[in-house]
Design a protein around this nucleic acid. Sequence first.
DNA 1: TAATAAATGTTGCATATCTAACATTTAAGG
DNA 2: CCTTAAATGTTAGATATGCAACATTTATTA
Lengths: 152, 152
Amino acid sequence: MSSTNEQFISTRLRGLSHRIHRFFENSPNKKEFDSITGTHGWIIAFLSCKKDEDVFQKDVEKEFDITRATASKVIDSMEQKGLVRRERVAHDARLRKLVLTPEAESASELIEKDKIMLEETLVRGFSEEEKKLLGEFIMRMRSNLENKDKEE
Amino acid sequence: MSSTNEQFISTRLRGLSHRIHRFFENSPNKKEFDSITGTHGWIIAFLSCKKDEDVFQKDVEKEFDITRATASKVIDSMEQKGLVRRERVAHDARLRKLVLTPEAESASELIEKDKIMLEETLVRGFSEEEKKLLGEFIMRMRSNLENKDKEE
DNA sequence: TAATAAATGTTGCATATCTAACATTTAAGG
DNA sequence: CCTTAAATGTTAGATATGCAACATTTATTA
């Protein structure tokens, strides 16, 4: 059955994404925190490394390339679990600034470790040059799909 | 906010996967068939190109790198919609052979076109060499995660 | 051959994601 | 200033995905 070689890039990329998801979901440190799902972990790490800036939901959308509706719901669930707060800002009533709670803050260091372990595992054996090239490939594909979207 | 350049490969890959998903979900031909979702479309195309072989659920799992449970459920929904049948085979009572219904068959050609359009769009501007390299990168990442999984 | 392990598939329950339609607020253009 | 467009966020309903636990069947091995 081994059809792997004939597989389209798109199929392989989606499969790899599933695998990344499962890998992170089962990371040892993150597993300590029962209520923090994989997606929550990504978002906590993102907010944590942007501590000095204002981060809004739209920034989460862009960072993870998810839709507005998805971001809204995921952050709902994080808020319910006490991982994040939504704060209004003075200059624009549409925006909701996202702020990590102390609990999420305290988990963020371990989660960050999981994220780094995933990244190191993923590109193990890649030279710096290869990593750079890979990053460029991904950006090119991303932009290829984007332009096609806008064209129609 | 543009953190794109510092993003981990894993984050970018997941984002790209979301984008691929949305792109295919909105493909013009597939949209003609109301009840055929993106995932159904992938599976139909897969079964269609394997017409001469026996394809079981486990093969679908492997092709798309999804879990057993997911495959079971997706195929449930395809069966309910009359896109596929599960058939028993004589030599092994565990297996369920998957067979496309005439409806799915007749849709498969157009869906295949969508798939090809996606693929062409995705790697537009890539040389043959780059495509080959990209495919290898993906396989290496996949195997990196796999080995780590088994190690524990 | 009997006990155990491995392979395949299913079910229950939770989360993640999408589209479409909506509401609110701000920005732009006349 | 008023109208319209754009940006941001939410909600409803659907599909996709996962883990854990289970059931059945086949393969291994003692």
